[in-house]
Amino acid sequence: MCVRQDACLGVLLGSIGTDVNTGTQRLTFGVIELFDGLSLPVVAMGLFRVSEVISSVGRVEDAGSRNKVSFRSMIPTRDDIRRSLPAWLRGSLLGSFLGAVPGVGGAIAAFAAYAVERNVTRYPEQFGKGAIEGVVSPEAANNAAGQTSFIPTMSLGIPGSAVMALMVGALMIHGIAPGPRLVSEHPDLFWGLIMSFWVGNLMLLILNIPLIGVWVRLLTIPYQVMYPAILMFVCVGAFALNNSAATVYFVLLFGLLGYGMRSLDLPAAPLLLGLVLGPMLEENLRRALVISQGDFTTFVQRPLSAAFLIATVFVLAWVIWGAARERELAA
C-alpha cells in the first residue's frame, strides 16, 4: 500500500516500457517512443518548468520595486548578526539532519526550521513581517539539507530530494550505479564531487554578492517575454533528446499534469522520486526472488534486511495512523 498517491503514480509511470526480463511491452499502447520507458528529463521539464509557466500566466507583479536592492543594503547590522547566529546554527543542524533522510529535501527542512524559529523567538510579532530569524534559519536549513541529501544518494542509491533524483538518473544514463561501491569503483567521480562543493560555494560568493544588482535587474524582464522563451528552450531541449516530436508532446502532457498537481497542492517531487526508485525497486525485488527461487522469506532471513523491513512497516503504520487521526479530528 502506498501512502502518497503522487509517489504511487511515479512508480506506475516507472513501469512503462519494455520488461527487461520477459521483453513484454507494458503500458506503451503501441507508442514506439515509450518502448524504452519515460525519460527522466522529459518528466522533470514538464512537471517543474512547463507547469510553472502555466500557473504563472496572468499573474501580475510589481517588477519595479525589485530594482531597489544594492550591495550596501545587504550588509547586516550588529543587531542582525546577533539575532542571526543562533537561528543560523539551529537551521544548519536541523537541515543537516533532515537532509540525510531520504526523500525529505530542502523544502521540508526549510519549513521545519521556520516552525522551530516561531516557537523559540523572542519577537513573535515580527514573524511574517520581515523577522531576520525567519529568513536566516530556513535558508540555512535549505542549504544544509542540499549538502547532506548527497549522503543517502551516494551511499545507498536512494535520492534524498528531487534534485538528487535527477542526479541519480544522470549517473544511471552514464552507466554509473550510486551505492556503497561508488567510492571504490569511481573514486575520481566521488572526490571530484566533494571538491565541487568547495568550488561551488566559492563561486556563489563571487557571483551572487557583487553582482546582486545585475541579477535583480534580470527579474524586471516582463513575464510575457520570459515565459515564451522558457517554453522555447524546453521544447528545443526535449526534441534534442531523441529527435522526436513525440517527446515535446510528452513534456507538454506532464506540464498539464504538474499544473493539476499544483492546483491540488500535491508536490511533484514524490512523483519524480517514485519514477526513479520504481524501476530500481522492481529490478532488485525480482533479482532477489530469482536467486531465492521465489521464496519471499529471503527478505527476513538476514538481520539487517529484516530490521529495515520492520522499521518500514512501523513508519508506514505511524503515517497511516496519523492521517486517519487527522481525518477524525477534522470530522
Rank of each mutant, 00 (worst) to 15 (best):
T312C: 14
A246S: 08
S39W: 00
L329Y: 08
F197V: 11
A110Q: 00
R118T: 12
G179L: 04
V43P: 04
F233A: 13
T220R: 09
G14S: 08
T247R: 11
A323D: 14
V136C: 04
V214F: 08
S161T: 11
I209N: 00
G134M: 02
D36A: 13
R327P: 02
E133N: 11
S65K: 14
I209H: 01
L13A: 09
V135A: 08
I132P: 06
A100F: 12
L253F: 15
M1L: 11
L273E: 02
M195A: 13
N143E: 06
G99D: 09
R82E: 01
S263N: 11
F150P: 05
L211R: 05
V319F: 05
G260M: 09
G294A: 00
L316G: 14
M167I: 15
V319N: 07
P159G: 05
F127Y: 08
P222M: 05
M45Y: 00
S137R: 10
I75S: 04
R302D: 06
Q224S: 11
I320L: 12
A145F: 13
F296N: 05
A115M: 07
I176C: 01
F197C: 09
F239G: 05
V225G: 06
A307R: 12
Q301V: 07
F71R: 13
P178I: 09
A109F: 08
V31R: 11
Q126G: 00
N21M: 02
K129V: 04
G14L: 10
L264H: 11
L38W: 06
I173N: 13
Q25R: 14
G30A: 06
R59H: 12
E52Y: 03
F71S: 03
M164S: 08
G106A: 15
A162T: 08
Q293K: 15
V60G: 06
M232I: 11
F197S: 10
I320D: 03
D62V: 07
L273K: 03
I230W: 01
A131I: 07
V104N: 01
I75Q: 11
R90W: 05
